[in-house]
Simulated scan of single mutants.
Amino acid sequence: MPDRRPIALITAHGQPSNPQPPEAALARLAAQLQDLLPEWHIRSATLSAPGRFEGELTPGAVIYPFFMARGWFAGQVLSRRIGQIPHQMACPFGLDPALPALVASALENEVAKRGWTGQDYELLLAAHGSARGPKAAEAAEDFATALRPLLPQSRITTGFVEQAPLIETAAQALRDRALRDRALSDRALSDRALCLPFFAQAGDHSRIDIPQSLTAAGFTDAPLPVTGALPGVAHLIARALETCLGAGGAR
């Protein structure tokens, strides 16, 4: 009998200079989703691995953009790669209405682990941004706005890799403001500041660019794991796939 299970294709940008590690990481996420959704057939492909996305694309599939915004790649490059093949498009990961609560829970756990419960702290949301258009920055700013009421003890600042304010600039402003407002020593400040990379996958930006920017601004703590690697992400994506399938409307 033919396999009539719904098909989901999880896709991310990947890393053109070294496509295999993010491809493997996306495959591991797909395996987690397969365990959560045994009635589905889960596939994965980054856009950076040559021919991989087209090889996994099947008519009628639910495509899940593991992207933080509906920007250049998720909104235009992905559409061109799909062409006229019928499909359903899920909400991009970074725009999922359930994501702020997931991140807030992860940050509350981190704060408790550090012994900061009930204390104010700084949170730098380090995002990609884009020189191609405003959607990437808007997604990060909207996410920060949604996160603020969920984390009343935090003071959230955004910074970007590819546009102003750059991460180093935002981190320096955050550091100077905290020192001025709270009269803390440098070490005390570093113990009360977190940096969350607003990225779906780990790559050179999260492993190299962001840590270098933080160091240049006087921070000593390493950034947290990227948003897409936080606990509960696979469950969030599974719910999003079920919601998209239930809504119908292949295109």
Rank of each mutant, 00 (worst) to 15 (best):
Q20G: 02
I156Q: 02
A30H: 08
G218L: 03
Q163H: 14
K135L: 13
L9N: 06
H205F: 14
V62I: 15
A74F: 13
A25W: 11
H41M: 14
S185P: 07
Q32L: 06
S154W: 01
L36I: 07
L196E: 01
D186V: 15
G203H: 05
A136F: 12
G203W: 00
R81V: 11
L47H: 01
A178K: 14
S79V: 03
Q34A: 06
A74L: 09
G115V: 12
L179T: 10
L33P: 05
P59T: 14
D221M: 08
T117M: 02
H128P: 02
R251H: 10
P2W: 03
A8D: 04
L196K: 06
E122K: 07
A222W: 11
Q172T: 04
A183V: 08
A146N: 11
A217Q: 10
A127T: 14
L33S: 05
L124A: 01
S213T: 04
A222C: 09
V226A: 05
P165V: 14
T158G: 14
A61W: 12
C244Q: 09
D35R: 12
F66W: 01
R155Q: 08
N18E: 15
H41C: 15
S206M: 01
R81T: 01
F219V: 12
A238K: 01
W116M: 15
L194Y: 06
F73E: 03
M1G: 07
T58R: 04
R132W: 09
P19V: 01
M89W: 06
I167F: 03
E56G: 05
P19C: 03
F66L: 03
L147Y: 09
G133H: 12
G232K: 13
A90W: 15
L95Q: 02
S190F: 12
A200G: 02
G14H: 09
D120M: 04
A136T: 05
G75H: 10
G228W: 00
V103M: 15
I156V: 06
A170F: 05
S44N: 08
G249P: 10
Q76G: 03
L9S: 06
A173N: 10
S44T: 08
D142M: 11
V226G: 06
A98W: 08
H235M: 14
R177C: 13
D186Q: 09
L78K: 13
L179F: 08
R239Q: 13
F143R: 08
L245W: 15
V77M: 03
E162L: 14
F219R: 13
G246L: 15
E56Y: 01
T157L: 02
L179C: 12
G83S: 13
I63L: 00
P19N: 07
H205D: 15
T11E: 00
L125R: 10
P22N: 00
A250R: 11
L230M: 07
G118C: 10
L78Y: 08
R70S: 05
V111Y: 06
L196P: 02
V77L: 04
G203T: 00
A183R: 11
Q32A: 15
Q20T: 11
S44A: 15
T46Y: 00
A131W: 12
A25S: 15
Q153F: 03
G75L: 04
H87N: 05
A200Q: 08
R70F: 08
I237H: 02
C91N: 10
F73G: 05
A238W: 11
